[in-house]
């Protein structure tokens, strides 16, 4: 399908980010490393919604921060519109910030509790000098409020006086002011009730439709990611194990981890209880000392000898479907 294969906007090349774990007081020098992100390659096209799914601690949030330059990679590069942002200075990066934005999981902690909503929304305009005068500022603020469906009187409130859904919409409005090209949505609806989640998802979809942003939508909730994304990838212990167009990921899931993830998600249909489905045993391994070979092999029902020794390559199996597993052959 040659459908909307637009230009690449953001690209990660062999992206790695390790965090140092402080060893105890008396064991300096023996520092250990958390391999939070360990060799991620992916690109997001213009006007694309890209979903990233994984369980807690798989490194998906770190990928989002690396994409925005909020974390510096240990190695590898992130290209934004052709510019390698991992090589930019702090100040150059700061100026690039109006091109991108991030929405966090917990809306109440992503807004400054001591700032009125009005000032919160005023800041981006002032930092990047987006308005010529006070009237224009006011107009811009009122415009974005309409976009996210927030009433004007809330401008005079503090974040804690708003509901979770309202706070999240203010966080979105703040980013809209910058009119960026790329927005990272890090579990934007995970802390919200289902009705509020539906509302926020609708707003995000409509804004995407209207302004043509690219989204990186990060979540542990497969259904939500599948609902909103064009393409999606599954992450496991710092690596992407499978990447496909969203229709293919459920229908033609290949990687055993993806399949067990799909099997584990409860389905809101009482006639399809999971009794018969296979339940994945064991737990996510530590990212400090990930298993050798394929990282999933200790839990994998299909593990072979080679899986324990050599790490599988991330290969193209055709139709824009990629998987890192020995069970499948490359289409080339």
């Amino acid at each position: 399908m040659g459908k909307a294969e637009g230009q690449v906007l953001v690209k990660a090349e062999n992206l790695k980010r390790y965090f140092r774990v402080e060893a105890g007081l008396f064991s300096r020098g023996k520092a250990r490393w958390v391999h939070a992100v360990d060799g991620v390659n992916l690109h997001i096209r213009k006007k694309e919604i890209f979903g990233l799914v994984g369980e807690s601690g798989c490194g998906k949030t770190t990928v989002g921060k690396l994409f925005l330059g909020l974390e510096r990679p240990t190695s590898g590069s992130v290209y934004f519109d052709g510019v390698d942002i991992s090589k930019l200075s702090r100040e150059e990066l700061r100026k690039l910030r109006r091109e991108m934005g991030i929405v966090y999981q917990h809306p109440q902690s992503s807004l400054n509790p001591r700032m009125l909503i009005e000032e919160t929304l005023r800041r981006p305009i002032e930092i990047h000098k987006l308005a010529k005068n006070e009237q224009e500022k006011k107009r811009m603020i009122l415009d974005v409020l309409d976009e996210v469906g927030i009433e004007r009187y809330l401008l005079e409130r503090y974040p804690h006086e708003l509901s979770g859904g309202q706070q999240q919409r203010i966080a979105i409005a703040r980013i809209l002011l910058l009119n960026p090209k790329f927005i990272v949505l890090d579990e934007p609806t995970s802390a919200l009730d289902v009705l509020v989640q539906a509302h926020v998802l609708n707003i995000l979809s409509n804004l995407h439709e209207k302004f043509g942003f690219s989204y990186l939508f990060i979540s542990h909730d497969l259904d939500v990611v599948e609902h909103i994304s064009d393409r999606m990838a599954v992450m496991y212990v710092g690596k992407i194990v499978e990447l496909a167009r969203k229709k293919d990921l459920r229908r033609r899931a290949m990687h055993p981890y993806t399949r067990s993830l799909l099997a584990a998600v409860p389905i809101p249909d009482p006639r399809k209880k999971m009794k018969k489905r296979e339940i994945l045993r064991g737990e996510v391994p530590s990212a400090i000392s990930p298993p050798r070979g394929c990282r999933f092999h200790p839990r994998c029902p299909h593990a072979m000898d080679i899986c324990r020794k050599k790490e599988p390559k991330f290969k193209d199996v055709g139709g824009g479907h990629y998987v890192a597993c020995y069970l499948f052959k490359s289409s080339r």
Binding site: L68, L70, R94, K95, R97, R98, M100, G101, I102, Y104, H106, S109, S110, L111, N112, P113, R123, P124, I127, H128, A171, R174, I175, L178
Partner: peptide, 14 residues
């Protein structure tokens, strides 16, 4: 470490 500080950085605050 609060997200609102990181989100301030993300909108380009000095």
């Amino acid at each position: 470490e609060q997200p609102y500080v990181e989100s301030a950085r993300a909108i380009g605050e000095k």
